[in-house]
């Protein structure tokens, strides 16, 4: 059987809100390492990878590796019933066809059980090679969200260019064009407010803004976001989940034929 107890249950709620519109059904993989997921969006353009390490849970028991197929919209409906301060426990039996979500209020005066049917999902796991990226930009997550939202009111695609001057986000549409440049800025009070550009080589890639906007639904998970880029490789948009792991989005670039 498996049983995970997450004191900061709101993390799981935030993860679901971040991915449920991108991915419909997914297999959650449970092992002694942690709770993870890898899934593509229905167009097979983007990939979501989630890792919540076992050490981040207050209690983590996983007797054997288990894959649990879930409809993320249904899972989200259930997790929305948990309060933001609730402790969430996930339980399932080996070979069973249900998963139980238990919500406990902080003062233990309300305890709820929700059972959800599991699904058989045949999903293809992709191998993601370890890569040295040509450029990595770390910036405040709220700033990145704002830029994606602003640019999508003007165009459908964004060109992200990293040079030693900074990172430039550009778009073009019927009404005109826009360029937003963020320079490295490490002279801030808090490290999460910094913009840090690690550039080994300049890089310039084109992406669909629709996906970028979808990824920024993960903004409540982390104060900062990192964008890892190399020519002709998918962009990695990573939100770290404090003390537990990460939520990563991989997005295939648009390439000239």
């Amino acid at each position: 059987m498996l049983e995970f107890r997450l004191v900061q249950g709101s993390l799981l709620k935030k993860v679901m809100e971040a991915i449920k519109d991108l991915v419909t059904d997914a297999n959650f993989e449970c092992s002694s390492t942690g709770f993870s997921l890898q899934a593509m969006d229905s167009s097979h353009v983007a990939l979501v990878a989630l890792l919540l390490r076992s050490e981040g849970f207050e209690h983590y028991r996983c007797d054997r590796n288990l894959s649990m197929g879930m409809n993320l919209n249904n899972m989200s409906k259930m997790l929305k019933c948990a309060g933001n301060d609730d402790i969430i426990t996930i339980k399932a039996d080996d070979g069973g066809d249900i998963v139980t979500f238990m919500f406990e209020s902080p003062s233990q005066d309300k305890i709820s059980d929700f059972e959800m049917k599991l699904m058989d999902i045949s999903s293809e796991q992709l191998g993601i090679p370890e890569s040295e990226y040509q450029s990595i930009v770390r910036m405040p997550a709220a700033e990145f969200q704002r830029i994606c939202k602003d640019l999508s009111s003007i165009g459908d695609t964004v060109i992200i260019s990293v040079t030693k001057e900074g990172v430039k986000f550009s778009t073009r549409g019927d009404i005109g064009s826009a360029n937003i440049v963020c320079r490295q800025n490490t002279s801030v009070d808090k490290p999460e407010e910094a913009t840090v550009i690690e550039m080994k080589e300049p890089v310039s890639l084109t992406f669909a803004l629709r996906y970028m906007n979808s990824f920024t639904k993960a903004t409540p998970l982390s104060n900062s976001v990192s964008l890892s880029m190399s020519s002709d490789l998918p962009l990695v948009v990573e939100y770290k989940i404090a003390d537990m792991g990460y939520l990563r989005f991989y997005l295939a670039p648009k390439i000239e034929d």
Binding site: M40, S43, H44, V45, A46, L47, E124, Q125, L126, G127, I128, P129, T157, T206, A208, D232, L233, P234, Y250, L251, A252, P253, K254, I255, E256, D257
Partner: peptide
């Protein structure tokens, strides 16, 4: 205009 590639163009099953 640049064409959208699928993610499977870059990452293979395995």
């Amino acid at each position: 205009a640049p064409q959208q590639r699928p993610i499977t163009f870059f990452f293979s099953p395995g």
